[in-house]
Write a protein that binds this DNA or RNA. Structure first.
Length: 761
DNA sequence: TTCAACCACTT
DNA sequence: ACCCTTGGTTGAA
């Protein structure tokens, strides 16, 4: 353990770990020293009780064998906004904290607050510090003075030393057999650590880590393959593995989890977290994959969640952490997490709500001279500008401040917790976007892109969490206010546009597509400004299109579907949504053919040219069909990746995923719900389900792929590009006299009967 | 054949 | 706890 040197020095707070006496801080100084030193920390939680029960509670807590300090005080209750008397329990040793909480929760008639927050986060909330904060250390001795703010956009970036570690062979059968060799890389230099002799591998790795002393070990599949295997080897051979920089605690693997997030099951391998050093697995982190290290660090700063934990958690946890930080600094009691399992709304429900805005049916087919306008961060902006928060909706004081299109009203007197958390996020993201635009340095632009992307995800999920029943700070009614207002704004936008002579083609939640002959950018800018003025929300130009195609529904020919389109911007960029190419379960071969067809067709600047390019596109498709038919395509190009949504045995239908999931199970490699499996179709029509498809891993040269099935998939994916028929079919379906092509599907819950109020309290 | 049930994907 | 964006498949009727 290293004490901070004096005189004072400056550096970055990289992590904080609870110990028996307080916290240990890991600091990287500007001079490049790595320091570990202890700071005092005594976590507190609160018990809401009064009178006789209070006395009993006190006596019970005093009898516990853990040193605690009790104090009667008051804290704000979020929903009422009033002070409640509470018993503050300060636990001397962080290591006792959760045990004291556990024993307290068995006390009769008590409610616990601030009691289930991970200790590093609690420490960050209470100290005002945050991961990656730039600090001065040693003033006062052992003290840390913050020289930074989570809202700075120009904080110095710590010079982290990174080692990359990957398996020599990326593919191959999962989680069985030996480890194989490892490829390690630092400062662009690659080295292969041979896997033949495990003993030597371990000692070489130890020497390597000792010499390079990295702050970050960045792996591909470190959580589920590399580290568990190394640890197992280390145990078997009795050679300790020097992964931690600090302490000699045993390295343990976290629990693997499957959970719903945004409409789908996701699987997270149990994480392997280190002390005094980070281990991050690129393949086991949503935000790392989405926004890179820059994005991960950005989120760690604003959410105050330690980097390794943040990398492996869902974005919702991040927004919740920000809300808790705000609550604690405002003296608001943090309710216990309701613990989702039972009443967890299915992913589909959650997703529905996220789309709960207004969706039009597009005018199907090919359109020329089109502009797309998008509201900037529509939902979070609505939440802040209208003060939408669980405690501000339907408040007792402001019944006159009604939300149009809903039965709710919003408080005008008390600033809501949710808006308070979101407004600095919105502002910071805006600044990053501007910095990105004005920056010359491509490296810096990428950095800003990662950071704004990380903030975008926090903003996106903030809306979902607002309506999620089990969120600590969620309430459906607040959610309904947001969707009601968003519908209202989209309609206003449509009206303004139509008044200015634009033809409304399509609208989804926060975007609208308009056409007018001979569009020019300046006019569109005026329109956007006018819509911004009318709605009070910023709307921007996503782009001007030469043309856009809204594909028709296969189920209901003549009608288009909202989320499948292909457009060519005047900038030359192609925008593709919803079609095979964008889907993660499309085999690479099919995606490539489709891409080639699109690239060919995108030479067209208008419908006439598009038509003239059709034969060429058809040729690409025919070529692909021929290749499939001749069986010339490498299987790796035909792999279909599917995410397993349930336990393999739970499937009731012999779908390809089910067949292969069960095949893997039989081989002792049972996939977990949320995990993705790779499969190849071998005989879609085979009477024996087991022969219809097989895992890519077990596909050997004696197997062959099902040519017919793949030909079918290819046609299905690519034919719509050649015939999007919206044009050729006159809009005859509107025979009843109604313009059916703009059928509006507003999904709105039935208004709740008033009786639901009595179940509150 | 048809059709209900099932299943995955989408930002 | 359930009435659902679409597109697709499975397997029974």
């Amino acid at each position: 353990m290293v004490r901070p040197p004096r005189p004072e020095t400056t550096g970055w707070l990289l992590d904080a770990y609870p110990t028996t006496h307080g916290m240990h801080l890991w600091i990287l100084t500007e001079k490049g020293d790595r320091l570990f030193f202890p700071v005092p920390f005594h976590p507190r939680f609160y018990i809401g009780t009064t009178g006789r029960v209070l006395e009993q509670t006190r006596r019970r807590l005093e009898r516990l064998r853990f040193p605690v300090t009790l104090a009667e005080t008051e804290r704000l209750e979020l929903f009422s906004g009033t002070l409640h008397p509470v018993l503050e329990v300060t636990v001397l040793s962080p290591s006792d904290f959760f045990e004291v909480v556990r024993q307290s929760s068995s006390l009769p008639e008590v409610a616990l607050y601030n009691c289930d927050i991970p200790l590093p986060q609690l420490y960050f909330y209470e100290s005002g510090l945050f991961p990656l904060a730039f600090c001065r250390i040693g003033t006062p001795p052992d003290g840390v003075e913050l020289l930074d703010s989570p809202w700075n956009t120009d904080s110095p970036v710590p010079p982290i030393r990174t080692v990359s570690v990957a398996l020599e062979e990326e593919s191959g059968p999962a989680r069985c057999g030996s480890l194989g060799g490892l490829v390690v890389e630092i400062d662009g230099e690659r080295r292969l650590l041979d896997g033949e002799d495990p003993r030597e591998l371990l000692t070489t790795l130890n020497t390597f880590l000792k010499r390079e002393d990295p702050d970050l070990i960045l792996t591909n599949r470190g959580d589920d393959m590399i580290l568990p295997r190394l640890l197992a080897l280390s145990g078997k051979l009795g050679i300790p593995l020097a992964l931690n920089r600090f302490g000699n605690q045993e390295i343990s693997q976290g629990k693997e989890r499957s959970f719903f997030s945004y409409g789908k099951m996701v699987f997270r391998a149990g994480g392997v977290s280190l002390l005094g050093r980070w281990h991050l697995d690129r393949k086991n982190s949503f935000i790392l994959g989405e926004a890179g290290l820059a994005g991960l660090f950005e989120q760690a700063r604003v959410t105050r969640i330690p980097v390794q934990h943040l990398a492996r958690t869902s974005t919702g946890t991040g927004i919740t952490s920000m809300q808790m930080a705000y609550a604690i600094s405002s003296g608001i009691l943090v309710p216990k997490d309701k613990g989702m399992p039972e009443a967890f709304r299915s992913g589909l429900d959650l997703l529905e709500d996220d789309k709960g805005g207004m969706v039009f049916l597009p005018r199907p087919g090919f359109h020329e001279s089109v502009v797309e306008l998008d509201f900037a961060s529509m939902y979070p902006s609505l939440m802040t500008t209208h003060n939408i928060s669980p405690e501000t909706v339907d408040c007792p004081c402001c019944p006159e401040n009604r939300v149009p299109g809903s039965s709710h009203h919003l408080c005008t007197r008390r600033k809501g917790l949710v808006p308070a958390v979101l407004s600095p996020l919105l502002a910071k993201r805006q600044r990053y976007k501007e910095l990105k635009k004005t920056s010359e340095d491509p490296h810096l632009r990428q950095e800003y892109e990662g950071r704004q992307g990380a903030l975008k995800w926090l903003l996106v999920v903030s809306f979902g969490y607002l309506g999620y029943k089990n969120a600590r700070f969620g309430k459906v009614e607040a959610h309904e206010c947001v969707t009601a207002l968003s519908r209202n704004k989209l309609l206003q936008a449509k009206e303004v546009a139509e008044n200015q002579g634009y033809r409304f083609l399509h609208g989804i939640v926060d975007s609208l597509w308009l056409s007018r002959p001979d569009l020019d950018e300046a006019e569109c800018r005026c329109l956007a400004d006018e819509i911004s003025r009318t709605t009070g929300l910023t709307i921007g130009i996503e782009g001007l299109y030469h043309w856009i195609i809204f594909f028709t529904s296969k189920g209901r020919p003549g009608l288009a579907v909202p989320n499948r389109y292909l457009g060519l911007f005047r900038s030359g960029e192609i925008k593709i949504r919803g079609i095979a190419l964008r889907r993660s379960d499309t085999p690479p071969f099919i995606a490539r053919i489709q891409k080639r067809m699109i690239d060919h067709l995108a030479q067209a600047k208008n419908l006439r040219e598009y038509r003239s390019l059709l034969p060429g596109a058809r040729e690409v498709l025919d070529e692909g069909m021929k290749e499939i038919g001749e069986g010339r395509i490498p299987v790796s190009e035909l792999v279909i990746k599917k995410r397993i949504s349930k336990e393999p045995e739970a499937y009731r239908k012999a779908s390809f995923q089910a067949i292969v999931a069960q095949e893997l199970t039989a081989r002792g490699q049972a996939p977990r719900p949320g995990e993705r499996i790779s499969l190849v179709i071998t005989g879609a029509r085979d009477p024996d389900p087991a022969s219809r498809a097989r895992a890519y891993d077990t596909f050997s040269p004696d197997h062959s792929y099902d040519r017919q099935a793949y030909a079918h998939l290819l046609l299905q994916a690519c034919e719509p590009l050649l015939d999007f028929s919206g044009q050729s079919l006159p809009e005859k379906k509107s025979a009843k006299g109604k313009p059916l092509d703009l059928l509006l599907r507003k999904r709105q819950r039935q208004p709740e009967p008033a009786e639901s109020e009595k179940t509150m309290i």
